[in-house]
Design a protein around this nucleic acid. Structure first.
Length: 430
RNA sequence: UCCUCAGUAGCUCAAUGGCAGAGCAUCCGGCUGUUAACCGGAGGGUUGCUGGUUCGAGUCCAGCCUGAGGAGCCA
C-alpha cells in the first residue's frame, strides 16, 4: 500500500510502500540506513543484509543521493528516529538514477545554491520554508474570503506608471506599444472597491529598482485589500487583524516546519492585538532620543525601522508620514495637511516594513493638483480620476509583501529563500 | 548608480613572494544502530581573465569579469 511519509504514524506494524527519493545513505557493512524523502517528509529505512539477502543488499551499496526509489517495508516505532518511526526495508526499486548530485550533505555557498535553486528546494530546510509560505498564502486567502472581501485581480500588463516614483520593467506589447509590468494593483483595486465594496488582489509585482539588499526582490508577491467607505483607522485595524490571523495560523499548523527552521515561536506567539500605533512625529522623536541621525521630513532607513521595532514585542504601526515622502494618491491629514494618512506596519526582530498603505485621496481637485505636482501624465490617469468624478467616497487599503512576511515568520536572513525562484538584480536563472 | 569585501580541486576552505594542501563528494576496501556516521586507500588543479613588477607571483600592482553585503528606493 502506497503511503505518504507524513501519514506514516497511522501505519505502524503494516507493510507500506514509499515512493520518493534517496536523501542520504549511511552504511555499516551488514546494515544500510537509507534516508528517504517523498515531499511530505523524511524517514529512515533500515536494511539489514539478513533480511533482504546478498543481492539486493549489494545493489543498495551503490544507491546515490537523489536516486528516485520505491521502497517497501514495515513501519516500526523507534525512539531513536527524529520522527518517531522507521521502516524495516524489505525491498526497493530504482525509478531513476542520480549521478554526482551537486548538493552534498555539507556546506555550500549562496551563489552555488542559487544557481541550483531547482535542486536546493529538495532540502529539508527549503521545503519547510515553502510549506510555511503555502500556509501564509492560504491564511491570507481564508482571512479575506471569510470576511466579505471579493477577489478581483488587477492586470499585470499596465499602460503606465502607477506611482511614477519607482522604476518599471518595460516590455514589448505587440509591434508598437510598450507595456509595463505592474508594480502595484492599487489603482485598479480602488476602481474594484467602488464596484464591489471590499476587494483584494493577490499576485506578482515587479520593481525594476537596482536594489541589492536582503530585503528586495525584483519579482515578489503582494496581497492588496481595498475598502470603500474606509478611514485610516479602518485600514490599520484590518492590517492588524490580518497579521494576527496569518501568524496564528502558521504557528498552529506549521510547528514541525518552524522546528526544522529552529524558529523560536515564543516571539510569534506574542503577536496579538492590539499593535502599538505611533505617529511619525513620535517615531522621529524616539529615534532622535536613541541618537539616530534622522530629521523630521525624512523617510526611515533600515536601521531606523529596526530601532523602532525593537521597542515593542509585536508589530508596530507607524502612521501619518510627511506627505512629501509618500505617493501622490495619499489623503492629507485634515488637521495637518503636511501629513499623509498613511501607515506602515513594521515587523519585529528587525524585519522592517511588511505592510504599507493608508487612506486614499478622494477629492478630484486635490488629486488633479497632486498629479501635476508629481509631473505625471494626466491623460493616463483619466480612468482613475473618473472614480472621483462619479460618486467618490473615502476609501483605503494596503499592500502586504508575502516574502517579507514569510521571511520574518521563518526568521530567514534573506528574502531569496522565501520564494521558490527568486528574481534579483543579477539573478534570472534558473 | 555609489561604497566595502570576495573569487584556489565538484563543494567548503588553507597555503610568510620560494614543492598546490585539507575535509567533504566520487571510486576501491572495512564495519550490524548510523543521525552532515566512522576507519584505510586512490583519482581529481589554466589558483576568475588580461597585462605588469620580480631570479621566482595563488600571494604584490593595474585594468577587466563574476558574485556577495550595504546605501539609496521600496513590500
Amino acid at each position: 500500500m502506497h503511503v505518504y511519509i507524513e501519514d506514516i504514524g497511522k501505519h505502524e506494524g503494516q507493510e507500506v510502500t514509499i515512493k520518493g527519493w534517496l536523501h542520504n545513505r549511511r552504511s555499516s557493512g551488514k546494515i544500510h540506513f537509507l534516508i528517504v524523502r517523498d515531499g511530505t517528509g523524511f524517514i529512515q529505512g533500515v536494511m539489514s543484509k539478513a533480511a533482504v539477502g546478498e543481492e539486493l543488499f549489494k545493489q543498495a551499496d551503490h544507491l546515490s543521493q537523489e536516486t528516485s526509489i520505491i521502497v517497501t517495508g514495515t513501519v516500526r516505532a523507534d525512539k531513536r528516529a527524529p520522527s518517531g518511526y522507521e521502516i524495516d526495508v524489505e525491498g526497493f526499486e530504482i525509478v531513476g538514477q542520480s549521478h554526482d548530485y551537486p548538493i552534498t550533505p555539507k556546506e555550500h555557498g549562496v551563489d552555488f545554491l542559487l544557481d541550483r535553486r531547482h535542486l536546493w528546494i529538495r532540502t529539508e530546510r527549503q521545503q519547510a520554508i515553502l510549506r510555511v509560505r503555502h500556509e501564509v498564502i492560504n491564511a491570507i486567502r481564508d482571512f479575506f474570503n471569510s470576511s466579505g472581501f471579493i477577489l478581483a485581480d488587477t492586470p499585470i500588463f499596465t499602460p503606465a506608471a502607477c506611482e511614477g516614483t519607482t522604476t518599471l520593467f518595460p516590455t514589448q506589447y505587440f509591434e508598437e506599444t510598450t507595456a509595463y509590468l505592474t508594480q502595484s494593483g492599487q489603482l485598479y483595486n480602488e476602481a474594484n472597491a467602488m464596484a464591489l465594496g471590499r476587494v483584494y488582489c493577490f499576485g506578482p509585482t515587479f520593481r525594476a529598482e537596482k536594489s541589492k539588499t536582503r530585503r528586495h526582490l525584483t519579482e515578489f508577491w503582494m496581497v492588496e485589500p481595498e475598502m470603500a467607505y474606509a478611514s485610516l483607522d479602518d485600514v490599520m485595524e484590518l492590517a492588524e487583524d490580518l497579521v494576527v490571523e496569518v501568524v496564528a495560523r502558521v504557528v498552529d499548523k506549521r510547528r514541525p516546519e518552524l522546528k526544522v527552521l529552529e524558529r523560536d515561536t515564543s516571539t510569534l506567539e506574542r503577536v496579538k492585538k492590539p499593535f502599538p500605533r505611533i505617529s511619525y512625529d513620535d517615531a522621529v522623536k524616539t529615534l532622535q532620543s536613541k541618537g539616530l541621525p534622522i530629521e523630521w521630513g525624512g523617510d526611515f532607513g533600515g536601521p531606523d525601522e529596526t530601532t523602532l521595532s525593537e521597542q515593542y514585542d509585536r508589530p508596530v504601526m507607524v502612521h501619518r508620514y510627511p506627505a512629501a515622502v509618500k505617493a501622490f494618491y495619499m489623503k492629507p491629514d485634515p488637521d495637518r495637511p503636511e501629513l499623509a494618512l498613511g501607515v506602515d506596519v513594521l515587523a519585529p526582530e528587525g524585519y522592517g516594513e511588511i505592510i504599507g498603505g493608508g487612506e486614499r485621496l478622494a477629492d478630484l481637485d486635490l488629486l488633479l493638483k497632486r498629479i501635476k505636482e508629481h509631473d505625471l501624465p494626466q491623460e493616463a490617469f483619466e480612468w482613475y480620476l473618473d472614480l472621483r468624478r462619479y460618486g467618490t467616497v473615502p476609501h483605503g487599503g494596503f499592500g502586504m509583501g508575502i516574502e517579507r512576511v514569510v521571511s520574518w515568520i521563518c526568521k530567514l536572513d534573506h528574502l531569496r529563500e522565501a520564494i521558490p525562484y527568486p528574481r534579483m538584480l543579477y539573478r534570472l536563472y534558473p
